[in-house]
Amino acid sequence: MRHASGGESDWWGAELLARHPSGAVWAEGDHAVTYGLLRTQTSRLRDLFTAHGIRSGTTVALQGTPSFSQLRSALALWSLGAQVMLIGQEIRGIELARLLDSRRPQFHVAFSGSGHGRRTFHDECEILVRRMRRGLPAASAHCLVHFTSGSTGFAKAVGRTGSSLLAELDSFRRVPGMPGAGARVLVLGPVTHSFSLVGGLLHNMHVGAVTVFAPRSARSAVLRTALRSGADTILGTTAHFTELALGDR
């Protein structure tokens, strides 16, 4: 965890955010987002979260509509030295209450998307910041806390340090066939899942590939996004590829 007195350039992912030219495309949804715009918007979110009292060692549960707002928020929180708990959008009600009660984050940051239908990714969302009663500061140096699927019971927490994430990115970079500089990668899974986040978004930032998100999950919409964006790689699970092969159900 970095110290609260530090700046934007001394956190574990600062070089990932800063290394690419301002005009280079970071990611695409309905619209393309350049690294210049990403850096500007991430800096503004730092100011927003700082105004709410978030600083180094603060614990923050990040949950809601998959969006660029969600991703920029994670980067801004990490740059402040906060410990980010990534919670899937599908976790609601009693399960969410149990998870928040067990982990006791100091803040809950959620995202509210507009629109109807099967839309699964938004460029922009309203950001809702709520201070949690009985929240506790970070007790470890983990910058990221993921949660297992809960298939064997209640979801279990998996902590990651910045150094472990950077080491994994170096490992991904050496894997034959992984996307490289200039690649266009359509990521189908949510970034609350480790592989979509680390092997997808962060790896693409590491090597200079563009991350593409499909606004809707229906097979026809995913295929249109792949064609429109010129994606040369699709990153997903067995279920995603089964859906693409067999068609909408």
Rank of each mutant, 00 (worst) to 15 (best):
V158K: 01
V158G: 00
G159A: 08
G159F: 04
G159V: 03
G159W: 05
G159L: 01
R160I: 09
T161L: 09
G162W: 09
G162H: 11
G162N: 07
S163E: 07
S163M: 09
S163W: 08
S164Q: 08
L165I: 05
L165T: 02
L166H: 08
A167C: 11
E168M: 06
E168H: 05
L169V: 09
L169F: 07
L169M: 07
L169G: 03
L169W: 04
S171D: 13
S171R: 06
R173I: 10
R173D: 09
V175L: 12
P176Q: 09
P176R: 12
P176D: 08
P179A: 04
G180N: 02
G180K: 02
A181E: 10
A183K: 00
R184D: 03
V185G: 01
V187K: 02
L188I: 02
G189A: 13
G189C: 07
G189T: 13
P190K: 09
S194H: 14
S196W: 10
L197T: 02
L197P: 01
V198N: 06
L201C: 01
L202D: 08
N204Y: 04
N204P: 01
N204Q: 07
N204E: 05
M205Y: 14
M205T: 10
M205G: 15
H206Q: 15
V207D: 13
V207H: 08
V207E: 11
G208M: 07
V210Q: 06
V210T: 14
T211P: 06
T211M: 09
V212E: 14
V212T: 08
F213N: 10
F213W: 15
F213H: 05
F213P: 05
A214M: 05
A214P: 10
P215W: 10
P215N: 04
R216G: 12
S217I: 14
A218G: 12
A218E: 08
A218I: 09
R219G: 04
R219A: 10
S220H: 11
S220P: 03
A221I: 04
A221E: 14
A221Q: 11
A221M: 11
V222S: 09
R224V: 13
R224F: 13
T225K: 05
A226R: 05
A226G: 12
A226T: 05
A226K: 15
A226P: 05
L227C: 12
L227E: 04
R228A: 08
A231W: 14
D232T: 02
D232G: 03
D232Y: 03
T237S: 11
T238M: 06
H240F: 09
H240W: 07
F241R: 00
F241A: 00
F241Q: 00
T242D: 05
L244C: 00
L244G: 00
L244H: 00
A245W: 02
A245L: 04
A245K: 01
L246H: 07
